[in-house]
Every structure is written in C-alpha cells, then in structure tokens.
C-alpha cells in the first residue's frame, strides 16, 4: 500500500490538518516509509488470536449515579479563546 499526494490530502482533511501542497508531497514519502516499516506485521500468524482490548486483566468499574460535578462554568470557559457570556463561540455553522 502506497500513499500518493491525493491520499495524503484526503487524510489531512479527515484529520483537520491544513497542509500545503509541498508539505503533502514530503508527508507522503514519510508516511510511506513508516507504512513499509510496519508492513512486516503481515508476516505474523495471528489466526485464532484475539486482538487486545485491555492490557490489564480487570473489569470495568462502574460509578454510582450521583451529581458530583459541574456547576462551575468559569472553570469550563476560562481558557476559551473566544466566548460570549457563558457560551463558547465558533464561526457560524450552517446546518
């Protein structure tokens, strides 16, 4: 599998990364280098092997249903690059 510039542009779009065309070119070759390196995994026989879902042999802990958090809009909004009152703001979205 080899990525070309167009494929890189598509992935960059998916990842919301602005990437100039010359950078896309370089990125394609870097990614191909990495992909050819990881290609060696295909040689491993993984028939009947379960993919790992958790490295620690433990069960998911469940918490109680109680209100223990929230009610601190300032803590939530303080670092916002832009806000209006208690709202975050973003460039207008047209649905």
């Amino acid at each position: 599998m080899s990525l070309d510039k167009a494929a890189v542009a598509k992935i960059a779009k998916l990842a919301r990364l602005k990437m100039e065309p010359d950078r896309q070119e370089a990125m394609a070759s870097e990614l191909n280098r990495i992909l050819s390196f990881v290609e060696e995994l295909q040689a491993v026989n993984t028939d009947n092997v379960q993919p790992m879902t958790s490295v620690a042999p433990m069960k998911l802990r469940q918490r109680e249903d109680a209100v223990t958090d929230g009610g601190k809009p300032e803590a939530v909004l303080k670092n916002a690059p832009q806000r209006q009152g208690d709202f975050y703001t973003v460039p207008k979205v047209i649905e």
Partner: peptide, 26 residues
Amino acid sequence: IMIGTYVLSAGYYDAYYTKAQKVRTL
C-alpha cells in the same frame, strides 16, 4: 496523527489496527 488516522480509516482498520492488536496479544 496522519498515520493514526490512516490506519483507523475504512478499509485499512483490520489490516493495520486489528492486526497490530492481535500481535500485541502475542
């Protein structure tokens, strides 16, 4: 981010991510 996005994307997930998590089990 680019590599990660790619290996999780439709059509490549099993060949890369699932495979890697299987090898991780081994």
